[in-house]
């Protein structure tokens, strides 16, 4: 036993980490091209403007993720004895706050434009010497974005699942929200084309609601993490059954009469305490060390467990199911 050991990811997860990093780099490259495509065709359309901002904001999660993948597995030290796994949480706190604020601002902007009845002028654009309606160029740029976003979202999901990587999952979710809102922007542009000026503001409002939603979902998740929420399943608010599995594993040991478990997530990994009421106290120290080893093997995410022998488990020592009262 020692404090401050370095966490080693299993081979499969290690591979997926490399894939996650690669996907993040690919994301950055592709999102740069989509941001350029939308910027070039931007014009006076509010929907295009919001789609562009969403594109730019979509670059933040891959950057955060790359930084986190680099920093999180640094060895713990005297100053940070629990290691650096919470880098992910800190980075995501910033990202999601920015997302939510940007979304609210864009929503305000587009709703005001709708209320004022501002009609977007969309004129011509010169493409290879032909003067075409700029709306067509916008639609082409947006279709490109939809394709890229769809592919990125699809590629990231399985990696996020294997890694149990909520950050990557949220990123994939943002890609999905992104391509859907770019689809909305296409509808908005076509509505302008048919002379319905409100289509633009409506599409923009829809996109900004999507951005706010992205921000809110991420914010909620990361606040949970920073509040030492028990492990939750990826992509939802359901609680992970890991505490129950650990409890069962501990209570299956012949020398244990009762066990209680408390866990928290540190980014990709899990830390926590296991209280054990021993049946017999012979060789207790050796048994506890053995128990730590066995319990750590229950799930690859477990980084540090403290096993503590107690004489009895009083009611109320361990947390009840959170939210269950509500």
């Amino acid at each position: 036993m020692r404090l401050g050991h370095r966490f080693t990811f299993p081979a499969r997860q290690q591979r997926e980490r490399h894939r996650a990093a690669r996907l993040s780099w690919v994301s950055l490259g592709l999102l740069t091209t989509t941001a350029i495509a939308v910027y070039v065709t931007l014009g006076e359309s509010e929907a295009m403007k919001t789609a562009w901002v969403e594109d730019l904001l979509g670059m933040v999660p891959p950057i955060v993720l790359l930084a986190a993948l680099k920093i999180e597995n640094r060895a713990p030290n005297q100053r940070f004895p629990y290691g650096y796994f919470r880098t992910v949480s800190v980075a995501f706190l910033i990202t999601s706050a920015v997302l939510a604020l940007a979304g609210v601002w864009l929503l305000y902007d587009s709703v005001m434009k709708l209320l004022h009845g501002e009609r977007p002028p969309v004129g011509t654009m010169s493409v290879f010497g032909h003067m075409i309606w700029a709306g067509w160029a916008m639609v082409v740029a947006l279709l490109y974005c939809v394709g890229i976003g769809y592919w990125l979202g699809r590629a990231k999901r399985p990696v996020a699942d294997t890694l149990n990587d909520k950050a990557l999952y949220a990123d994939a979710d943002m890609n999905k929200a992104g391509w859907m809102s770019e689809g909305a922007a296409i509808a908005g542009i076509l509505l302008i084309g048919y002379g319905h000026w409100w289509g633009d503001g409506l599409a923009a409002a829809f996109i900004s609601v999507n951005i706010v939603r992205d921000g809110w979902v991420n914010l909620r998740q990361v606040i949970g993490d920073l509040m030492d929420e028990t492990p939750t399943r990826i992509g939802g608010q359901e609680l992970d059954d890991l505490p129950e599995r650990l409890k069962a594993c501990a209570e299956a040991m012949p020398w244990v009469s009762q066990a209680a478990v408390r866990l928290r997530e540190h980014g990709h990994v899990i830390a926590g305490e296991v209280l054990i009421v021993p049946r017999e106290e012979q060789d207790l120290v050796a048994r506890i060390e053995h128990a730590v080893e066995a319990l750590t093997k229950v799930d690859w995410r477990i980084y540090t467990l403290t096993v503590m022998p107690v004489s009895e488990l009083k009611d109320g020592v361990m947390p009840k199911q959170p939210w269950s009262a509500a």
Binding site: E118, R119, P121, V122, G123, T124, M131, G135, I192
Partner: peptide, 9 residues
């Protein structure tokens, strides 16, 4: 006038 895109084009 804003939004008169056919005429603008």
């Amino acid at each position: 006038a804003a939004g008169e895109n056919a005429l603008l084009v």
